[in-house]
Design a protein around this nucleic acid. Sequence first.
DNA 1: TTCGTCATGTAATGGGTTACATGATTAC
DNA 2: GTAATCATGTAACCCATTACATGACGAA
Lengths: 187, 187
Amino acid sequence: MLEIAVLGLLNESPMHGYELRKRLASLLGAFRAFSYGSLYPTLRRLQEAGWIDEEAPLEQTPAPSVGFAGRSKRGKRVYKLTAEGKEHFATLLAEVGPEAYDDEGFGTRLAFFAQTRSDIRLQILEGRRQRMTEQADGMRTSLARTRERMDRYTLQLQEHGLESADREVRWLSELIESERTARPPLG
Amino acid sequence: MLEIAVLGLLNESPMHGYELRKRLASLLGAFRAFSYGSLYPTLRRLQEAGWIDEEAPLEQTPAPSVGFAGRSKRGKRVYKLTAEGKEHFATLLAEVGPEAYDDEGFGTRLAFFAQTRSDIRLQILEGRRQRMTEQADGMRTSLARTRERMDRYTLQLQEHGLESADREVRWLSELIESERTARPPLG
DNA sequence: TTCGTCATGTAATGGGTTACATGATTAC
DNA sequence: GTAATCATGTAACCCATTACATGACGAA
């Protein structure tokens, strides 16, 4: 999750960790803000895997002290995607399994839809819609079956959840529709 | 989270693990279904803490083999809340900090609102509303600032998120209102 | 007798968080 | 010169998941 988000942002432009975290927070909507305690280890892991790389900073100050990679002690580390990283990111975006439909995964995929193939976009939207439809139906059934036995708070909770699920289904249907008209099927 | 949910359900009636999991799934809405890999260890932990206890099953079959606590080999283990467990659960429900407002925590608290003191209910609802209001405002600001630079998918994502947040705020306001009229402040 | 579902459990792992620690840079 | 914010990092922990393993019981 963090991995795909980091790769996606770095695919748009090189960035350092601190900035990455801010972009992440605003992209994924204030909630889901990832702490540094997971971000920095992830950056290291991605670098070791060869998917991202540190940009050597262009030296304005004449002589950096002995430090490796051009950094004196502990300056900004600006990361960018490598060729393999771009490839890997493309592979991740092309996955259409359940991990692309669930609550955490779907938001992240959608955030990078502009970089996703249009047939994959459609598959993900339809998968998500199916999942949300099933969830809504399950809640409807359970509500119908146990409505009388529930206290008003449980009822409110379930009804709000159901309405949210229904709203999302409608929203997805609109997205699917405009996706289809924008790129009509061959023939 | 699992702890409070387990205690809450067992406070309503004694139950075994398997049943607990099904009730959990329907209570928290199909999503958030907790696997056995976390449920059973939690039950053990709660039992070791003295908050829940195994009910000795009433023997219908004449002689169980040597097993301890009345179970022959591995039968159902029906758990119930102890007195300390009830006390502990009440303490958990009375917490009004951030853990009661965030996404995971709030749903669980609301599910057991019928067992929660009405002044605490009000505090939790107001805390949640404040949090969601702040979140919505943050998203509105960020949308206003970066709307032009965003692709249509990111825009859709943010707008849907904003609408959901706004809807929840309105819903919370209704709950707060009815909570207040049902139990008007002293005087 | 075999299949489905009820029922309990463990081991390995994952993906994050909190709290802590450090240092550089900017604004007042 | 000092406070805020930018910036990077580590260690300990937490709460869950997946995959696996076992076994009882009822219905076809």
